[in-house]
């Protein structure tokens, strides 16, 4: 005789116990193909429209940039010409001739005031003078603080 264990009689899980053998499944949702197509077309349209718009804006900006570049070139040209003109007008020989034409005469002996006392502002003058010089003449390079 063989010893065969008898099947256990454990109770079924509760869920199994609840599920019926047959049940009504819900009707599958209808696929919104049309909506997807419209959405896709909308996105594609927006992309195309956006791209075209951006390109149009960029082209407009390119025109503006071109105009600005031309203005910069013109301004730089004017600046260079003005630098040359200022230097021409500052020519000592020209100023001397113009002064003589106006009836001016060369100065006589130059007077120097030699002071042997320290003035209150002596300590601050050099810096002030130097910074003023540098700040007031943008045409000149910064040469030194003592200029």
């Amino acid at each position: 005789m063989s010893a065969v264990p008898a099947p256990s009689r454990r109770p079924l899980p509760r869920s199994h116990a609840r599920r019926p053998h047959l049940r009504v499944v819900p009707e599958p949702r209808p696929r919104h193909t049309l909506r997807f197509a419209l959405l896709y077309l909308g996105l594609a349209g927006a992309t195309v429209f956006g791209t075209v718009s951006l390109n149009a804006l960029a082209a407009g900006d390119a025109v503006a940039a071109h105009r600005l570049e031309q203005e910069v070139v013109t301004a730089e040209r004017d600046y260079a010409m003005l630098v040359a003109e200022v230097a021409r007008l500052e020519d000592p020989a020209r100023i001397r001739a113009a002064a003589l034409d106006l009836g001016m005469v060369p100065a006589g002996s130059v007077r120097f005031l030699v002071v042997d006392r320290t003035l209150p502002a002596d300590g601050v003058m050099p810096d002030l003078v130097a910074s003023d010089d540098e700040a007031t003449d943008p045409l000149k390079p910064v040469l030194s603080v003592e200029k």
Binding site: R77, A80, A84, K140, K147
Partner: peptide, 14 residues
């Protein structure tokens, strides 16, 4: 080219 005081002696123009 500038002189010692920074006055322009030579420059270039268009």
């Amino acid at each position: 080219v500038y002189d010692r005081e920074g006055d322009v002696l030579v420059t270039s123009v268009d």
